[in-house]
Amino acid sequence: MNTADDSKNYIFYASTDNVKYISNILKAVQFKESANFHATDQGIKITVEDSHCLQANSYLQKEIFNDYSYKEDIKFKINLNIFIDCLQIFSNNVTYSPTALNQSFSNKVHLKVYYKEHGHPLILLLEENGVTTDCSIKTQEYEDVMEYDFLNIDIVNKIIFKSEALKEIFNEIDNSCDVLEILISPTIPNFRIATYGDLGSIYIDFPKDSSCIEYFSCKERQNSRFKHSLLKPALKAINYSSKISLRMDKKGCLSWQYMIKHDENIISFIEFYCLPLDEYDELI
């Protein structure tokens, strides 16, 4: 393949030096083998879904890239594990902390991404210190996923947390539990996380004026229960974030939105949606 500036022959082309940042953003949603890849004029959206009950979206804004050329709406499915492995080809010997997305590295990897047209593979060219490698990843048909419409009129409750506080909460809960319950109320306890399992029940309460809560809006008392095994990928992603927005709609569906800052003041978002147990049971 010609490595010169031949992006004009492709419907999508992007280049960046933020390879480690991107690979770790994608690791935060790496709980299934495959993912939907959707490129727009605003950036790239990667969607992973489990049994139509848990959905994760990683948003890679075009500002992350040095060059971003987009000619039409692009949608396909891709093997996420292979995609991440390719991005990490030059980082096998690097010790990287999941809590340090803004960590600096002396040797930067440069990435170019090409996509020619429907049915063609996604081409990655990676270069570090003059050493170049290319990867060709097979693309598949885009897979339909659940549509979660969290419109403002449907949002019953919303809380914005400092991530460090939620990390501490979930370090204390029973990881072997079957069910995790979230309670949000205008009266005390304003926010409660409870777990239920073979070891019994455990709950942790936070008042709305807690130092770890930056914003609290509660229209009505609401509590929803979730299958803990489904929520685990969303809880793991807390380690990558600086702030977390938790929202619940009228049906008790849960939305976690994670804000992730880059060292150059670029902000990315990861979003998880999870159905409550009653709706989950209807699907299985």
Rank of each mutant, 00 (worst) to 15 (best):
T3K: 12
A4M: 08
K8D: 14
F12N: 08
Y13N: 03
I25E: 01
L26Y: 04
A28H: 01
Q30I: 00
H38R: 12
T40M: 02
T40Q: 04
G43Q: 00
I46C: 04
I46N: 00
V48T: 15
D50R: 06
D50K: 15
A56T: 02
Q61P: 04
E63D: 15
E63C: 11
I64C: 04
S69W: 05
L80W: 04
L80S: 05
L80C: 11
I82R: 14
I84Y: 10
D85G: 12
D85F: 01
L87G: 06
I89Q: 07
F90G: 07
F90H: 11
T99M: 05
Y115V: 09
H118F: 12
P121V: 11
I123R: 13
G130L: 07
D134Y: 06
S136K: 10
Q140S: 12
Q140D: 11
E141C: 04
E141A: 11
D144M: 07
L151Y: 06
D154G: 05
I155Y: 11
N157D: 11
K167P: 00
F170I: 05
F170H: 02
I173P: 08
D178W: 13
L180T: 14
N190G: 12
F191T: 06
T195Q: 07
I204L: 15
S210T: 07
S211Y: 05
S217C: 06
C218S: 10
C218A: 14
E220P: 00
N223W: 09
S229E: 14
L235R: 05
K236C: 02
A237R: 01
S245V: 13
L246C: 14
M248Q: 14
G252P: 06
I260N: 00
H262G: 13
N265S: 15
I266P: 01
L277P: 01
D278K: 07
D281G: 01
L283N: 08
L283R: 09
